[in-house]
Design a protein around this nucleic acid. Structure first.
Lengths: 322, 322
DNA sequence: CGCCACGATTGTAGCGCTACAATAATTTGT
DNA sequence: ACAAATTATTGTAGCGCTACAATCGTGGCG
């Protein structure tokens, strides 16, 4: 910075101001400084700046996986909203609770301005670490009891809407697929909501199977076969993700079963593949970009977690498969 | 840090050593310090550390997209290799050249120990910025003329192998799909390699179409229809990604065309969907995790870019579709 | 023409940590 | 048991930048 100051004939402080508070510097001076900086390939040392100022303009997001595209829209929402506030977004991939803890430690070490977590099974100690740090935190897809503030849509309502839709289509023997591990506490609401609607319609609500992984088409094939063994007259299944649903559709095709003729297949999450499949998947569209946007707005607002989770919208996307 | 030092009854320097060079501190002392640090929820301020030490233990990766899973293995390879060296990986998503430049600036501002780029169309000035900074850089999927050091597999050889395979299967009218924008300079080698093999076999090499996007199934459907209009006797197509290939397969099914009976469809990239499709896709498996690993090793090694790009292996994955 | 108000610019004093050399505490060898 | 060798620990002096208050310039107005 010193070099730039000398080369531009101003004080180091003016150079600093040019980068941090362009408004405080006269147009001509600023242009001259920026010109010199560009020529010398100068990039301000954020660490030093942060150390001096005590706050950075970076927010960090920890993502559980890149295995599928479900976090694409979320990340875009985060990124765009951050940019709108003049912040940069850095992301870290953490597939296990341990990795997540370590990622959060790195982010905390970087003294980012805020951290966006995704709901799931967190390491014990993560909450305390974050609370102690005083860094603003949101938990996307999180509900009550989220670390920091929760932001997400009403999974129970979505599950009810989807179940009601299947029932309205005349489906009677509906299989429900659960995911065994990970995922938000909030997703636990899917099953009770399903049961509630089935019960209300006087239908059997015990066709429930649990799948290990929600990504990878294999689960869908496996689940379909298990269901059919359990209840040959099965006429609909409700999958935890579009990926699993797609796997189930493929397996139906392999077995010569028509979708939705013989079996209705509903997905969850509005993945790209669900749109492109034949038939296109009926699914729940979570508007993940809205979650990202809201998450940033919570982080910026520095609101305490007093008002409960922020609700974002969702949509029941009715297509051909169910 | 001061607080920890006082609470643990040692000097601040010992606390620092506990975190940076655990070996330099006696086991008992270290444990005591860590205990106190954990209780107080202390996380070292990386910025300050970096400022003082001049080097961080974080490497940054800029990814062009999360739209599909093609960078999942790459990121895993990067992450694991970084962890093996005691480094953390942070990633930034940049979908345009501008965003990439800005991401690199942030990373440079963070003074990361190394930057991993993905080959593609870079903003002018990016190279100069990185050269000036002195930060180690690799360009994954990059070849000759990469920014920093290139790491990737031999795309030309892969294209030749795939083309030869199709020819050996008795295919004669093979359509080749190019991607219009983005992508590595290196991918430009796919077409000449295809032409070379077709020419050598005395086959027509002019069935070439260009597609705008390599992600999204829509492209595949569109391309298939265009090819069929151009050459009704088409018996094979060579797609730029498994996604496009999957789209083409779906379109074949819609049209009642058998794959591979009527038309062989080859993908590229060994995506999850290619494995799960009926029929499974013949494709090029790039071992992206190896690219990630090599990238980190180049970054750590601090090798100059004198020896040309680092070659990683690839495999011709022969499955049912072609 | 002098004085004031206001915006632009500039010193000063750290931010929290680590490299390095110096010092203290141990262990080892005889 | 004592010197020598080894290992543990500790001051000192910044790293590059920014908050803040103090200064400097410049035009407006009486």
């Amino acid at each position: 910075m010193q070099d730039i100051a000398v080369a531009a004939g101003v004080s180091p402080m003016t150079v600093s101001n040019c980068f941090r508070y362009p408004d405080r510097v006269r147009e001509a001076t600023r242009l001259a400084v920026m010109q010199v900086a560009a020529e010398l390939g100068y990039v301000p040392n954020m660490s030093a700046g942060l150390l001096a100022a005590g706050s950075s303009r970076v927010i960090g997001a920890v993502l559980p996986s890149m295995r599928n595209s479900s976090f694409y829209n979320y990340t875009c929402g985060l990124g765009r909203a951050a940019a709108a506030h003049g912040f940069e977004l850095i992301t870290m991939i953490a597939e296990t609770g341990e990795e997540e803890l370590s990622a959060v430690q790195t982010l905390l070490g970087l003294r980012v301005a805020g951290i966006a977590l995704v709901a799931g099974e967190h390491e014990p100690g993560l909450r305390r670490l974050l609370d102690r740090s005083g860094t603003p935190v949101v938990e996307s897809w999180g509900g009550e009891g989220a670390i920091g503030r929760g932001v997400g849509y009403d999974v129970g309502a979505a599950s009810r809407a989807l179940t009601r839709h299947l029932i309205a289509q005349g489906r009677r023997r509906i299989g429900f697929v659960q995911v065994a591990v990970g995922g938000s506490q909030r997703y636990a609401m899917r099953l009770p909501a399903f049961r509630q609607e089935m019960f209300a319609a006087g239908l059997p609500d015990s066709l429930v199977l649990t799948v290990r992984a929600a990504d990878g088409f294999g689960s869908g094939a496996q689940i379909l076969n298990e269901f059919l063994a359990l209840e040959p007259r099965l006429d609909a299944i409700l999958c935890p993700t579009d990926i699993v649903a797609a796997g189930a559709v493929f397996e139906c095709q392999r077995r010569g079963l028509s979708v939705p003729g013989d079996i209705a297949v509903a997905g969850w999450g509005d993945y790209d593949i669900g749109r492109q499949l034949t038939p296109p998947l009926t699914t729940i569209a979570p508007f993940a970009d809205a979650i990202g946007r809201e998450a940033v707005s919570v982080l910026m607002g520095g609101q305490a977690h007093d008002d409960g989770p922020v609700e974002t919208p969702f949509a029941l996307e009715i297509r051909e498969s169910a």
